[in-house]
Design a protein around this nucleic acid. Structure first.
Length: 510
RNA sequence: CGCGGGGUAGAGCAACCAGGCAGCUCGCAGGGCCCAUAACCCUGAGGUUCUCGGUUCAAAUCCGAGCCCCGCAACCA
């Protein structure tokens, strides 16, 4: 089974107990950039996102809102798929854990794991807080009391199903040793590797239905529902049709690259691979762990009141600019800060004064000096071509490949700066006055071609701007974007004589 | 002694692994230009590289001690 031309990427599924958080938008965005890039590389991409809709918190949130759980989650989940549309996310599928295709698959998965002897019943004795309706650990308690309800928890026994995570200690270690980029960045890999080496214990993977009616029923035991994580993680394969009559997509696309936030790394890097091994399936290709966004240097929190609503953010600023800012400013492998001030700075410097102004000056000159047409070139500047070919593209590609979008786009803007500098050096307005019109045309031809290549490089992060640029150069968007990246990065003859379409200013000053 | 990351111009970061003129972006000051969105180009100012000690011809870099910030552990996105 050959899969080298496919690329399957998932975001974590968002827990749908509240309105979408900017952090999830960021995760969607990183994923979208990578998927669009992979499509440019010619891969057949399958991009999945969705919502996680079971568990205690959802059940309670629904109760509080006075709705039944299903209509509550219908409403919540819609907000997330709307966000994906609003942010121009190119996902191919959107899964909800309350869908039948997921529930059926999750149960199949349970049975596969159970058949291998990895799921067993055990009586669990724990400290149960009636107020919270959940078990507490010693560490949760303050002075022996539940911090939320100020009551001592009861000692309660419950029979649950457990997953033999401990069985996979050795196999997981092997997985980690064999593939050092199983988790990126390396710091996250090390974190998990250390936890792993400290030893894994079996974990409880079901709850009594009596206490928690909102979940997927354990196969052959109507008294129990699956623990949300055991349920949720399987979305990555149930969405591909695992366990259904048609497993074509599963065969074709699995295993996945999982894009997740650092807070759920354990579940994805330790529990999930063990679950997959238990069900006799391939482990994920990679876990890519991104950092968090701070606002004005502070952690976002409801009590501070600095939580950013993604829809409000893009209502205030141009979506493409927001996408660029986040990708350029919040490094994938680390935390990064958002502030209006930083946004304006980068917008003005990179988009308005940088790319936008550069586009504008080039197209205006083509209008003015070349009768609005892509000029014919007499002398090719090999230094310039080599610069793009050897300094820009390889660096761009190398960084995009490893989620280093910050550097990849830094490189692209180096090209913009080099072009601006070239205009200053050659002074086309003087050449024009001196009647050296072919020299002007040669220069402008090079600048137009550079602009075309820049349009391709920015496509993953600013697809609409990319298309605008391509159109302005008198090219056909559909034809250009259907070409392979190796063709697109070659220096080509733009269609000489093509009319350019100078449009609106790309990025007006704020 | 739980594990790990970090402290470098006003801000954000690079250089550290493998010691050799401390670099980039933004901001600031001055100059140039007139194709362009008051944009663009050039020059300049600005550093006790957290502290103390050690190794070395030479330390931001290596070693030791300390101070401070942060992440994971702990269903935060």
């Amino acid at each position: 089974m050959k899969k080298k031309d496919t690329y399957y990427l998932t975001t974590a599924i968002a827990y749908a107990n509240a309105a979408p958080h900017i952090g999830f938008a960021l995760e969607l965005l990183y994923s979208d950039v990578m998927c669009r890039y992979q499509r440019l590389l010619g891969k057949e991409v399958h991009f999945l996102t969705g919502t996680d809709e079971h568990g205690q918190k959802i059940f309670k949130a629904a109760e509080q809102s006075g709705q039944d759980s299903q209509s509550f989650t219908d409403e919540q989940s819609a907000k997330f798929s709307e966000l994906a549309d609003l942010w121009n996310i190119s996902n191919d599928d959107f899964i909800r854990t309350t869908e039948d295709r997921h529930k059926a698959g999750a149960q199949k998965f349970w049975l596969a794991s159970m058949k291998n002897g990895d799921i067993y019943k055990k009586t669990y004795t724990g400290l149960y807080c009636v107020g919270c309706e959940s078990f507490k650990t010693e560490k949760d308690l303050v002075d022996g009391l539940c911090p939320d309800h100020k009551k001592a928890p009861e000692i309660l026994q419950e029979e649950n199903y457990f997953f033999r995570l401990s069985n996979y200690q050795k196999l997981l270690e092997k997985l980690f040793e064999k593939n050092k980029s199983f988790i990126v960045p390396a710091s996250r890999f090390n974190e998990m590797y250390n936890i792993l080496k400290n030893g894994l214990e079996d974990i409880s993977v079901s709850r009594s239905k009596e206490k928690l009616p909102w979940g997927i029923t354990v196969p052959n035991d109507p008294t129990q529902v699956m623990y949300v994580w055991f349920d949720a993680l399987t979305n990555y394969i149930t969405a591909l049709g695992y366990g259904s009559a048609d497993e074509t997509n599963f065969e074709k696309f699995w295993p996945a690259v999982h894009v997740i936030g650092k807070e759920i790394n354990r579940f994805h890097s330790l529990l999930w691979p063990a679950m997959l091994m238990s069900a006799g399936l391939e482990t994920p290709k990679q876990i890519a762990v991104h950092g968090w966004m701070t606002v004005d240097g502070q952690k976002m929190s409801k009590s501070v009141g600095n939580v950013i609503n993604p829809a409000e953010l893009t209502a205030e600023y141009q979506l493409e600019a927001v996408r660029y800012f986040l990708v350029r400013e919040i490094p994938f492998n680390d935390d990064g800060d958002f502030s209006s001030e930083k946004f304006r700075e980068r917008y003005t410097a990179d988009l308005a004064n940088g790319l936008g102004n550069f586009t504008s000056r080039v197209l205006t000159m083509v209008e003015k000096y070349c009768d609005n047409q892509i000029p014919a070139v007499a002398n090719i500047d090999n230094n310039f071509i080599n610069f793009i070919k050897t300094e820009i593209w390889p660096n761009y590609l190398k960084n995009m490949d490893v989620w280093n979008f910050v550097h990849a786009y830094e490189i692209v803007w180096k090209l913009v700066a080099a072009c601006d500098q070239m205009i200053s050096d050659r002074k086309p307005w003087i050449l024009a006055k001196e009647g050296k019109i072919q020299e002007v045309k040669d220069l402008l031809y090079h600048l137009c071609e550079a602009l075309r290549q820049i349009a391709i490089m920015i496509y993953p992060v600013m697809p609409e701007t990319s298309e605008k640029l391509i159109t302005q150069l008198g090219l056909d968007v559909n034809i250009e974007l259907s070409k392979s990246l190796s063709d697109l990065q070659e220096w080509v003859d733009l269609t000489v004589g093509n009319k350019i379409n100078k449009g609106e200013i790309l990025f007006p000053r704020l």
